[in-house]
């Protein structure tokens, strides 16, 4: 299958390795991956700030960039939501890109029909941070756990797993004290684990930033990297 990667700004600059792992994983699963170089930002920062005009300009740009792609994979639940849910609102429902775009976990489970990647995560205890957009806009709830367990990981229950980390883009800098307190609620309820895995770079920036400020030493791993590691061991599909 031909897939185009929409890397997103944060992954491009802060999670480049996770983005590269996305490419590796998709190739490993038999996809031919392209990377349209004219891609930029999905426009969510403007959209969430109420700058709909600018968001629409960025949406049009992105829609143009991926015009010919059969399937677009996004290693971010939040940016995938922007394309799948908010582009149709902005463009008045004309964005067919929405139907061709998939969040990474969603793509693997539902489009490729794969849930067993390997056993490279055997013995690893993982808590999953469910990003709000993937969870409540795209209704992707079980996918990360299915895939990680499919790699042999043990998913450790976390009472705050589905609570917002407090990132929210502009929110994190406008309401910084509240935002940090929200991250604390997540961090303070973390069970004994090896990694926190999240499919969203933004949430990781927030939680990791707060965890490092408090010198908590929690290890955050992007879903793409975790899955690539999971697929890496012998016996897997790799």
């Amino acid at each position: 299958m031909n897939v185009a990667l929409f890397v997103t700004c944060l992954a491009d600059h802060y999670f480049a390795d996770a983005a590269a792992d996305t490419v590796r994983l998709l190739r490993h699963l038999g996809c031919t991956v392209s990377f349209p170089e004219a891609q930029t930002c999905c426009g969510q920062p403007a959209y969430n700030a109420g700058r709909q005009g600018e968001a629409l300009r960025m949406a049009r740009h992105t829609i143009g960039v991926f015009e010919d792609a059969d399937a677009v994979v996004v290693p971010s639940g939040s940016c995938a939501t922007m394309v799948k849910k908010f582009y149709p609102r902005l463009t008045g429902g004309t964005a067919t890109l929405a139907d061709r775009t998939f969040e990474l976990g969603e793509f693997i489970v539902h489009r490729l029909g794969v849930t067993e990647l390997g056993d490279g995560l055997a013995g690893r205890r993982i808590a999953i941070h469910q990003g709000c957009h993937a969870l409540r806009e795209l209704r992707l709830e079980s996918e990360p756990a299915t895939l990680l367990e499919g790699c042999g990981a043990e998913i450790v229950p976390w009472e705050a797993h589905d609570e917002c980390c407090g990132f929210g883009g502009l929110f994190s800098v406008k309401m910084t004290a509240v935002s940090a307190a929200m991250a604390d609620r997540k961090l303070d309820t973390l069970p004994e684990i090896d990694w926190v895995v999240s499919g969203d770079g933004g949430c990781v920036l927030q939680l990791d930033g707060r965890s490092r400020a408090r010198e908590m030493g929690v290890e955050f791993v992007h879903l793409a990297t975790a899955l690539w590691r999971g697929a890496a061991a012998p016996g897997g599909a790799r």
Binding site: V7, A11, D12, H13, Y14, F15, A16, D17, A19, A20, V23, R24, F35, E37, S172, V173, K174, T176, A177, S179, A180, A183, L205, Q206, D208, G209, R210, R212, A213
Partner: peptide, 26 residues
């Protein structure tokens, strides 16, 4: 970013951007 850094450690940029990695070949 100043506001960000009041309560959080600054984000660590990747050594090379994804674009650079892509061009170099993954």
């Amino acid at each position: 970013l100043g506001a960000w850094a009041e309560d959080r450690a600054l984000p660590k940029p990747s050594r090379r951007t994804f674009r650079e990695l892509w061009r170099a070949g993954i």
